[in-house]
Amino acid sequence: MDRLDSAAPGNGDVAGTGGPLRWLESQKNRLIVLTFLAGLAMFLPLISNNYVLEVMTNVWFYVMLCLGLNIVVGYAGLLDLGYAAFFAVGAYTTGILTSHFGVNFWLTIPAAVLFSICAGVIIGGPTLRLRSDYLAIVTLGFGEIVRIIARNLEITGGASGLIGIEKPSLFGFEISQISHFYYVFLLLACLACFVSYRLQHSRLGRAWQYVREDEDAAEAMGIDRVAIKLYAYVIGAIFGGVAGCFFAAKMTAISPETFMFQQSVLILLGVVLGGMGKIPGVIIGAFALVLFPEVFRDLGSSRILVFAIVMLVIMLYRPEGIWPEKKT
């Protein structure tokens, strides 16, 4: 087992900043780096300004989304091109329930999980029986359907979306400052790492890998490939849905354009860039996704063009992503 991998659940947030440097090969040095980065992540709000916090909160948010999609793409080997739809399901569930029905924010999370599961089963159930290519295009269509529905219904606020979503509070403490949200999303990202790690190293995680490598052989070993893929798809959906709830709470306003096709592609890029199926790789991918446009602000709308070219080059020359493969 990869040693860094095993350190990920506790300090998952920082595992991704290492590189394939020789110095990092010793476990002691890795621990030093990890501890330093964990400390940095913990105390960042004390030493930086709001801009940095805003960007880093966004990073943790994308870490969660990318790890969720990684379960579908990286673990189960399925291409999901409508991942933003689940993120939309979560965000709109929170938005609608809090602003139209006055439901407490925390209670909207189980509702969002439930809706994400339903959406995942409705889309995944029929399509996962077929060749995996169909899933890609059906999820693409599903992403569009969700966006169009959000645009055209009254309850979702139409094209202008929902505004004035209440900020959540916990035991009387209102989560309102950016530094509060920083910690909330940091916690979510750590949780996502932990859950991903545990799932990967379990009976279920192995089953995903069997199905990914050889569906027929897996089926011959008594593995129900449709059920196993659906499992991955639904768990990915839950990650997206929960991330969506917190997104709505942080932004206090959501609109259908947040959940366009490009959003799904961006999340996918994060997964592909760092290395599909590898937790530290996916974390690096999410960092790159958020930090790159911040550093190169002049790019504007060409940013996705640059990302697409990077994605093509990676697929052609380094399909395993930035993070190095395990040595055997």
Binding site: F194, V195, R198, L199, S202, R203, L204, G205, R206, A207, Q209, Y210, E213, D214, D216, A217, A218, A220, M221, G222, I223, Y231, I235, T328
Partner: peptide
């Protein structure tokens, strides 16, 4: 038709999948 990139033990473990039952909650 082996799972080529996995270890020998992991390959054999695939056979036990249908005789065991732990799901996501148990794994997490």
């Amino acid at each position: 038709r082996l799972f080529k990139k996995m270890t020998v033990l992991e390959n054999v473990m695939s056979g036990m999948h249908c005789r065991t039952r732990t799901g996501a909650i148990g794994a997490i």
